[in-house]
Design a protein around this nucleic acid. Structure first.
Lengths: 210, 210
DNA sequence: TTGAAAATAGGTGATTTCACCTATCTAACT
DNA sequence: AGTTAGATAGGTGAAATCACCTATTTTCAA
């Protein structure tokens, strides 16, 4: 089964040529482009693609903001972020926010091809840039990476929304006990004592936006 | 008894002339100037003044950041913030952070004189700018003003630091019950349900800096 | 100087969080 | 095939929070 891939970048020349390249990938059938986050989100709402490739540096919604909306709309869409700069902080924020791959703009087109493949099959595509950022930040925090799972991120978000464990359990159709466990794991992973710490971390990491 | 007043502004010409004017005020005896927040904080640590006048727009530490340090160092010093723009959000943030007066740079020197007086006698000096900002934001939030008292602000800050009620009580030499009441009042005033909400409000209001 | 607001502190009871366990099932990677 | 990580869920007990009270003292503004 071939994948449908949407691309967004404010430089039309770039996004169009990239789209042509992507269209030649053997595992891709359907390619669409947009030159803003808003416009791409519109496309996604019409027909959901399998993978979205977003430029980080865009006027209006940037890549991460756009990713955020797409995730909320449909969390099965895989998200690849492109950026000019391999800024460590940005990479960590992106990963914590649930991005599935991070590529520099000066990479070879082949890497995008493998990234699209891997991202669709697995959940995250790691490359030199991301692994280096993770390793570096693992000790040198702030901007530390805490390896929060998808479920944990979901629970954390709802904790930030001031819900109790019981309410979260109700919302996610899970046992209250399960949520308590997720919470406990978050406390440990993020090295905080209580809700105050969780909320601060969530905001720091860009998981929760104030 | 005459007051000692310290001034900080990065424009040396401005701060010097202002200092000369302030020195002529009948209730002021001692005036010192600095052209950065850091430098002023140094002066304060040498000898604490009664009142500090800070420009908001400064390179390095801005006026609010400087105010924050001064408050932590000695909370009996009164703080007056000067700004070019009467930005409502800034005013609310400043008040929530515990600033004692907010003046626009285009006010008459006489208003600074009364502000210094009032601020020293009472706790807060209100003028057209601040009252208008408060009234406007009271309903139109975000940036809402919740009328948090000094103690409450202190407790809120420690809640954000992940301390429990018992620990806060110990730190402030108060009963745990008192802190619990302050917390309860904060929950009501800020219209939130729990710690998560308190932390978010504190960050929004600039009371706690992430 | 009187009244309002703030700060203090106590009471009570329900609910929630915190901090440990164990255990099963599944998906994914080696 | 075995290992690891994640998601699920249960148990237990202590600690903390939440949500109402009442009441006294201080402080401040009108």
């Amino acid at each position: 089964m071939k994948l449908s891939v949407y691309l967004a970048d404010d430089h039309t020349i770039f996004v169009k040529t990239l789209a042509n390249a992507v269209a030649t990938f053997p595992n891709v059938s359907n390619v669409k482009t947009a030159n803003s986050g808003r416009q791409l989100f519109k496309l996604v709402k019409e027909t959901s693609p399998d993978v979205v490739v977003l430029d980080y540096e865009m006027p209006g919604w940037n890549g991460l903001q756009t990713a955020d909306r797409i995730m909320q709309y449909n969390d099965r869409i895989k998200l690849i972020l492109l950026s000019m700069h391999g800024n460590e902080e940005l990479i960590i924020t992106a990963i914590n926010q649930g991005i599935h791959a991070f590529l520099l703009k000066n990479t070879e087109p082949e890497e995008l091809q493998t990234a699209i493949d891997k991202v669709y099959l697995n959940d995250f595509y790691h490359n030199k840039v991301t692994t280096r950022a993770l390793k570096k930040s693992a000790k040198e925090g702030p901007g530390k990476y805490y390896n929060i799972s998808k479920r944990e991120r979901e629970v954390l978000l709802l904790i930030c929304e001031e819900l109790t464990m019981r309410e979260i359990a109700g919302k996610l159709f899970l046992s209250e006990k399960t949520i308590q466990n997720h919470r406990q794991n978050l406390l440990k992973k993020m090295e905080v004592r209580n809700t105050a710490g969780l909320v601060k971390r969530a905001i720091e990491l860009g998981i929760y936006i104030l």
